Amino acid sequence: MFGFRQIHRQIFKELAVSFLLCLGALLGLILIGRMLQLKELFLSQNLGLVEIVELFVYLTPFFLLLLLPISCMLAVFLTFLRMSTDNELLALKAGGVSLNQLLAAPLLFCALVTLGNVGVSFWGVSWGMDNFKATVLEHASSRTKLVLQPGVFNKEFPGLTLFAQQVEPGGANLGNVFVRDETKPSVPATIVAPRGKVATDTEQGQIIFLLNDGHIYRQSDGKLDVLGFDSYAVRLDLTRLMGGFRLGSDRPKEMSLNKLRELENDPATAELWDGVFLKKLKVEIQKRYALPAACMVLGMFALPFAFSFQGLKQHLGLVLALGCFLVYYTMLSIGFSLGETDTLDPRIGLWIPNALFAFMAVAGINMAGKERFPHIFERLSHIRFRRKAASTC
C-alpha cells in the first residue's frame, strides 16, 4: 500500500508540473498576443505595469476556459509518454503493477482540473470580464479628467481634439469648450459650446463629453452647415482601443451561467435579434458544461494515446497531442456553428466531440490494460528499418 502511494504521489507531482508548464506557456503566448492588440489602450491611457498586470489577471479566466482542457491533455500525454519511453511503465509492469492500478493519479488529477474549470466556466469568466471592463472605464475616466487642462488642446483620444478654457477639478464642469470630432471621417464636425462636463456610460463602455447651448459646424460640398443645440453628447467609444473586446452590454460568452439561464428562460429574449441571441445563449450554455467535461475526457484519452507512441521524442509528442486537440476543437467549432444556425441542437453538436473522445479513451484504456494496444511509433520504426535493409541489399 505504501509503495502504491509513493507511485501515485510521484505521478501526480509530475502531472502537476507538466500541467503548470503547459498552462503557463499557452497563457503567456495568448496574453502577449492580446498585449499587442491592446497596445493602443495602454499607450493612450499611459497605464503602468501594475495596471497592465491587473487587467491581464481579469482577462485570464476568459482564456482558461479553453486552455485548461488542452493543458490537462498535454500534461497526461507528456507524463505517460516519458514514463513509457524511459521504460518506467515496463519496470512497474514487471513489478506486478498493472495499468488499471496506475489510473488513480491521472483520474484524480483530471477531476481536480475539471472542478477548477467548472468554477471558471460558471463564475470566473463573468467575474473577470466585469472587473476588466470596470477597470478600463475607471482608468479611461480618470485619465480623461487628468489630461484636460485649461487652455490646452488635447489629442489623447483618436479622432478627437479637445479644448476647454476653464476646467474644474475632476472635469465636473468645463467652460468655453471646443471639440473637433473626426471619429467619422466622412462627416467631420467642429463643436463649440459655452458649457460642458465629462461623464462615463458604463452600459455602453463610453466616455461622454456633454455639451450645452452650443453649435455644430459641418462643411461638405463647399457648404457650411451650422446647427444649434441645447444639449449634445460627444461619445468616445473605447471599444476601438480594445482589440476586439467590447465594453458595452455583455455578450453571452462574457456572462455567468446563472445569467445565461435567466435570459434563456425570459420570454423577451426570443425576440432579440430575431431569435439569434437566444440561439447564441443555448450554444454558450452547453459550451459552459462541455469544456469542463473535456478536461476529464481529453485527459483520459491522452493516457492510452501516450502508450501507442512509446519511444517518440517529447517535442514531437507535443505536436502530435496538439494535433489531436485541434481535431477536437474543430469538431467543437462545427457544433458551435450548427447550433447558432439552428441546424443541430447544441445539446447534441457540442457533446459529440466529448462522446467520441470518451469512447476512444475507454476503448484505449481497455486495450492498453490487456496489452493489446498498438505501439504505432515502434511499428513505424520497424517498417523504416526493413525498408532501409531492403534498399541496402
Rank of each mutant, 00 (worst) to 15 (best):
I7H: 05
H8R: 10
Q10F: 09
F12V: 06
A16W: 08
G28F: 10
L41H: 10
V57L: 15
Y58T: 03
L59T: 08
L59G: 00
L64V: 02
L64C: 03
I70K: 05
L81Q: 12
M83T: 01
D86H: 06
L92S: 10
S98I: 08
N100F: 13
Q101I: 01
A105K: 09
G116T: 06
N117E: 05
V118P: 00
G119K: 04
S121K: 01
S126C: 09
T135R: 14
V147T: 00
V147L: 05
P150M: 01
G151Y: 10
P158R: 03
T161V: 14
T161A: 11
L162F: 14
L162E: 12
A164Q: 12
Q165R: 14
V167N: 03
E168G: 12
N173F: 12
V177T: 00
F178Q: 04
P185D: 01
P188F: 08
K197T: 00
A199G: 10
A199N: 12
T202W: 03
T202G: 02
Y217P: 02
R218Q: 11
S220P: 03
D221C: 07
L224T: 15
L227M: 15
G228E: 11
Y232I: 02
R235Y: 00
L238D: 03
L241S: 11
M242H: 09
G244Y: 07
F245Y: 12
S249W: 08
R251G: 10
L263N: 04
W273N: 15
G275R: 04
V283W: 00
E284N: 13
E284S: 02
Y289I: 08
A290F: 00
A294Y: 12
F301N: 06
F301P: 01
Q310H: 05
L312F: 04
L318W: 03
G323A: 04
G323E: 09
F325A: 00
T330K: 07
T343M: 08
R347V: 07
I348E: 02
A361M: 11
G364R: 08
M367L: 14
A368F: 07
F373G: 09
E378F: 01
E378K: 10
L380F: 13
S381R: 14
S381D: 11
F385W: 15
T392N: 04
C393P: 08
